[in-house]
Nucleic acid binder design. Sequence first.
DNA 1: CGGGTTTGACCTGCGC
DNA 2: GCGCAGGTCAAACCCG
Length: 227
Amino acid sequence: MSSSSQQSMLNQGLLQEKEMPAAVSQMGFFSFPQNLTSPSPYPPPFAFHQSLKPFDIAPDHALPDLTETLFSPKHRVQDHASDFGGPQLLSLHRSTSNFWAWGNECLGSKKIGVEDHLGVSAMKMKRIKARRKVREPRFCFKTMSDVDVLDDGYKWRKYGQKVVKNTQHPRSYYRCTQDNCRVKKRVERLAEDPRMVITTYEGRHAHSPSHHLDDSQHPHSNLNNFF
DNA sequence: CGGGTTTGACCTGCGC
DNA sequence: GCGCAGGTCAAACCCG
């Protein structure tokens, strides 16, 4: 990849930061890195591949208790808008610019209507709270890419594949190959737009990326540390 | 031969 | 309680 194209991608990222709604930055959900190093407890989720571009990113590291809320396929964000100041995040759902997915399309295939954002029954909230404690922290992001598996610097082993209902593309399950690392990721293509790859990470790596040494030999590879 | 992928079976949680 | 769907396991297979 040329340095100019990398710079272009970087510029896209910085543009995202500028365009980020004030409500989001105030809430501290995500701070886009200006120095190309990782400010987040998460590892770099992906390296910039030639054929992909950053699209929608939904980190949840600031909300460990809400990860289930945000990214569970069965309890999508619309169910819990009131948990975290609904109106600000609701607006994100309808953002048409090149960022924030906030789980509404991550993992799920249902379209979210305006009415879905309104009214959370007590019953639903009860179920949600009961489910929250078990999951590892998760985040997902959406990328436009020809390749399913993005190079995120870690080594993954595929342990399963499943055809998800109402989608023509199977979902693949990967585990980090590092000993004692329990991080998993799921990769699937968006039903509505097969060009989009949805990658969901679960857990945190307790080690460095496997080709860390390689990175040091390539001056542009610091873009890998985007998160 | 070792490491990764494929794939059918099995497990588990949830909704009805 | 039952059925469904998502997630995981593990044996078989593939490949370098």
